[in-house]
């Protein structure tokens, strides 16, 4: 079968797939046909986040996608392409710094229950592969948008009992953050870990409202706000 890979130009490779993963195929091309083909990989088991690419317009981990005849493989979007399928993830990673995606201070003697564990179990499954930034239509037009995985990470920490300064974390995601998301759900569809940053952002919006913030897109309509911070029209 044939697959097409977006390099400087599109290159077609004739391969024998036999139910192989895309990562295995990329490896075979590199080690036998063309040693200059460039891609990233690591664990081969969907947990290190190195090998995200786009296949037929959708973000996938190369190690967990089984190749089909005619597949079109290209690098992720919204990040600088360094070479072939490798993009520069530095910028996306920097948003974790920007949103202060960490626990503010060391906790002492705070007991968590089994139910507490489940509150952020899914969010802490994130592998930072960057698929969500590639798929995000908001990030594609606003490069200051804090973006899906960083906001999911904020929810991870603010939903943890050990975080004692939740308000500050919510303060930090108001600009280019929770209200800029269009809730289109593209991030959810591509997440290899089944995380929905869209749903996480909705939860962060609720927390923002509880903390007195309002959706800025409404504020231009209104003449004022009620005392509890909800918009009044």
């Amino acid at each position: 079968m044939k697959i097409n890979i977006q390099r400087e130009s599109v290159v077609e490779y004739e391969i024998e797939a036999n139910n192989k993963t895309l990562l295995e195929i990329l490896g075979e091309i590199k080690t036998t046909l063309d040693s200059s083909l460039t891609y990233s990989s690591g664990c081969r088991s969907s947990v290190c986040g190195s090998c995200a690419v786009r296949v037929n317009g959708k973000e996938v981990l190369a190690c967990s996608y089984h190749v089909q005849d005619g597949d079109f493989v290209e690098p992720m979007r919204n990040s600088e392409v360094i070479r072939d399928l490798v993009v520069n993830m530095d910028r996306a990673y920097e948003f974790n710094q920007k949103v202060k995606a960490w626990q503010s201070s060391a906790s002492e003697h705070i007991l968590l229950s089994h139910e507490d564990e489940k509150l952020n179990e899914l969010q802490s499954d994130c592998i930072l592969c960057g698929s969500c930034y590639s798929a995000c239509p908001v990030y594609s037009v606003n490069e200051e948008f804090l973006g899906p995985f960083s906001l999911t990470r904020v929810l991870r920490y603010v939903s943890d009992k050990r975080e004692l300064n939740k308000n500050e974390k919510i303060d930090d995601i108001q600009t280019n953050g929770v209200w800029d998301c269009t809730l289109c759900n593209a991030c959810t569809i591509v997440c290899p870990q089944g995380i929905s940053s869209k749903a996480d952002i909705e939860k962060l919006r609720t927390r923002s409202v509880i903390q007195g913030y309002t959706d800025p897109s409404f504020s231009s309509f209104g003449s004022g706000f009620s005392f509890d911070g909800s918009p009044s029209f």
Binding site: W102, S107, L112, S113, H114, D116, R162
Partner: peptide, 15 residues
């Protein structure tokens, strides 16, 4: 590790 926020699994009696 617990103090810096590692989300360990917990037992029913919060251990």
């Amino acid at each position: 590790l617990d103090s810096i926020g590692v989300p360990f699994s917990r037992t029913k009696d919060s251990k």
